[in-house]
């Protein structure tokens, strides 16, 4: 189980990375933490001709500014996990991302840009209404994370464009959040997961973000569930109703471990649990 031959270059800066990727074209792949990319290389599921190593491009770092937290693309997941600036939802979700040792190396930006439908960080970013910053040959742009994810392993990043930063809103007043996941065993890919971010004011839910993953091909905010919640006082009944609604909004394919019916049901259970805990 060894990778195909490829060329490897170290990018010492973002400019070098973009130049190398431009030169490599479709056959080039950026390499961040490698915790998903390198297994795919070893299994020969990916066969790039050029790997551009971003780990020395100076793209890491966590900065808090203006009510949000900017996380450089190659910031290790473990570093975010330990950071006081990490949003509580992210701190709750990160232990579900792989294992301690893979989080030591795996990066925040890599996980987001990889766009695995069962990945936790993309779900959190969408649930929090975060943004991504991408830079490519045509310059830098910032856009909502929700617009990044298309389907499994597919994003709206343009050819030659790199995700350089993710932007995470800091918790607002009256906000409570919760993350729920079930996997067959600790550290595994989720069967289903749900995140709820609710802003409460005077006993009423004023704003709601509810998103699910693993049962969808990309992290998906459930607008109908959010609409159900907003304007209502939180209650067990409301959470249950929201979960039941969520179950009807997903159409998971199922797999060797679980049927579509189970995954739909589980989505409802996890959404309900997340909403309860976020109230």
């Amino acid at each position: 189980m060894k990778p195909v031959p490829f060329r490897y270059v170290v990018a010492r800066s973002l400019e070098e990375a973009l130049a190398a990727l431009a030169e490599g074209g479709d056959d080039a792949k950026p390499l961040a933490g490698g915790q998903s990319l390198v297994p795919a290389l070893n299994l020969r599921l990916l066969r790039p001709e050029l790997l551009v190593d971003l780990n020395r491009a100076g793209l890491d770092g966590i900065v808090r500014e203006n009510g949000s937290v900017r996380v450089g693309a190659t910031t290790r997941q473990a570093e975010l996990e330990r950071s006081p600036h990490a949003h509580p939802l992210v701190r709750e979700a990160l232990p579900f991302v792989g294992h301690v040792v893979t989080r030591n190396r795996g990066t925040v930006g890599g996980s987001v840009a990889h766009a695995d439908g069962a990945a936790e960080l993309p779900l959190c970013l969408v649930a929090l209404g975060g943004e991504v910053v991408a830079e490519g040959p045509d310059g830098r742009r910032t856009f909502p994370a929700e617009e990044l994810f298309v389907t499994h392993y597919t994003t709206t990043l343009l050819p030659g464009e790199l995700l350089v930063e993710t932007v995470w809103p800091a918790p607002g007043g009256g906000e409570r959040s919760a993350f729920e996941e079930l996997a067959l065993r600790g550290g595994d890919y989720a069967l289903a997961m749900a995140a709820a971010v609710l802003r409460h004011d005077q006993g009423v839910i004023r704003e709601a973000r509810v998103a699910v993953g693993a049962v969808t091909d990309h992290p998906t905010a459930l607008a109908e569930v959010e609409a159900l919640l907003v304007g209502n006082a939180p209650s067990d009944e409301l959470a249950h109703e929201a979960g039941a609604l969520a179950a009807t909004l997903v159409d998971p394919a199922g797999g060797i471990h679980a049927t579509p019916a189970y995954l739909r049901h589980l989505t409802g259970v996890l959404v309900e649990r997340a909403i309860r805990r976020a109230t």
Binding site: P39, N42, V101, T102
Partner: peptide, 23 residues
């Protein structure tokens, strides 16, 4: 060699990482 079993774990600049997932 796909990052699950952990027996290749080494420390890179002090940090435990999967040896099979590094070039």
């Amino acid at each position: 060699e796909h990052g699950v079993c952990g027996c290749c774990t080494v420390r890179l600049d002090g940090v435990a990482v999967r040896g099979c997932l590094l070039l």
